[in-house]
């Protein structure tokens, strides 16, 4: 018998109007069809493609995940990192791989091991945000020292149970797909994005901009870097998509959403996205990681 009377479930606040891509009218908003196939917990699909023009693939990615099952409850813990390198003479791929590996190393040490040793609930462990920022700063220093002529973007998603924590530098992107809506979570640290921000052009114009490839923030340029971080709830039936600009530059958000909603499986979804990016030019490397949280864990 319950001692306390529970409050009636409150309706969630209605969202303010936004311009995010939503489903075409006539289609019922809901879970992507691929969720019917995914097992409980997190399912990860990943791919990296050189594209049609470039001679080398300068993108790197790392995924690390584990699930702890106890008390009839599964606790997923996942780390997903994407890095898009730049700089000649193989410096780009060295920089992107180094950045992703250094971050993975730090997060495994600062989050995964304390979690597995049940030490997370004390001030002795680094708070998640601090661990992420510290990992990205360490990666920045490593790139700065080891490949001074190279640089890289870096987008990190850390999933802990029902929440996702992000750290981000550059113009790779993280998106969340929830209830039929695709939302970009990261801000591009590029000149075109800033110009669009201050009303000097729409995102469409930005895509055609001659200075489109200028980043104002990237890893490995100075001995310190400002890291964007944020966190959000990842409800059951949601997906996180990380991708390099080789994908988002070639596949508009609404087509990306359509593909994610209609694909038969997470892997089929990102394979299809890569094909679309190549069909639309494929002039850059294309990397994507899609993490789906099952509708019923």
């Amino acid at each position: 018998m319950k001692i306390f009377r529970k409050r009636p479930t409150q309706q969630k606040k209605t969202q303010t109007a936004d311009t995010r891509p939503t489903l075409p009218s006539g289609r019922k908003a809901g879970f992507p069809s691929m969720l019917a196939q995914v097992p409980p917990g997190l399912t990860v699909a990943k791919t990296s493609h050189i594209g049609r023009i470039r001679e080398r693939n300068e993108d790197s990615f790392v995924t690390v995940d584990c699930t702890c099952y106890s008390n009839s409850e599964a606790f997923p813990l996942g780390l997903y990192i994407i890095a898009d390198g730049m700089g000649g003479h193989k410096k780009g791929e060295i920089a992107s791989a180094l950045a992703a590996q250094v971050v993975a190393n730090h997060i495994v040490h600062d989050v995964f091991i304390p979690f597995l040793c049940n030490q997370q609930q004390s001030s002795q462990s680094r708070p998640i945000n601090e661990a992420l920022v510290n990992a990205v700063e360490a990666a920045n220093l490593a790139v700065y020292q080891d490949t001074p002529e190279g640089g890289t973007t870096l987008t990190v998603a850390l999933i802990l149970r029902h929440k996702v924590y992000l750290a981000h530098v550059g113009d790779s992107r993280a998106y969340v797909l929830t209830k039929g809506t695709l939302r970009q979570l990261t801000q591009d640290h590029s000149l075109v994005a800033r110009l669009a921000d201050i009303g000097e052009g729409t995102p469409e114009e930005a895509l055609a901009h001659t200075n489109r490839n200028i980043l104002y923030r990237a890893m490995g340029q100075t001995d310190s870097v400002e890291v964007d971080t944020c966190s959000l709830d990842l409800p059951a039936g949601s997906c996180i998509l990380l991708c390099s600009d080789g994908l988002w530059d070639k596949v508009p958000d609404d087509e990306m959403l359509d593909t994610l909603m209609s694909a038969a499986s997470p892997q089929a979804a990102i394979d299809r996205l890569v094909t679309m990016a190549n069909q639309n030019g494929g002039d850059d490397n294309i990397t994507a990681i899609l993490v789906t949280r099952a509708a019923h864990s």
């Binding site: 898009d84 730049m86 110009l195 052009g201 001659t210 490839n213 200028i214 600009d245």
Partner: peptide, 17 residues
Amino acid sequence: GTMIGTEGYSPPEQYRG
């Protein structure tokens, strides 16, 4: 390809030429 760093002092309209 991607370049890093902006000139910092230039006005927004200069990027439109």
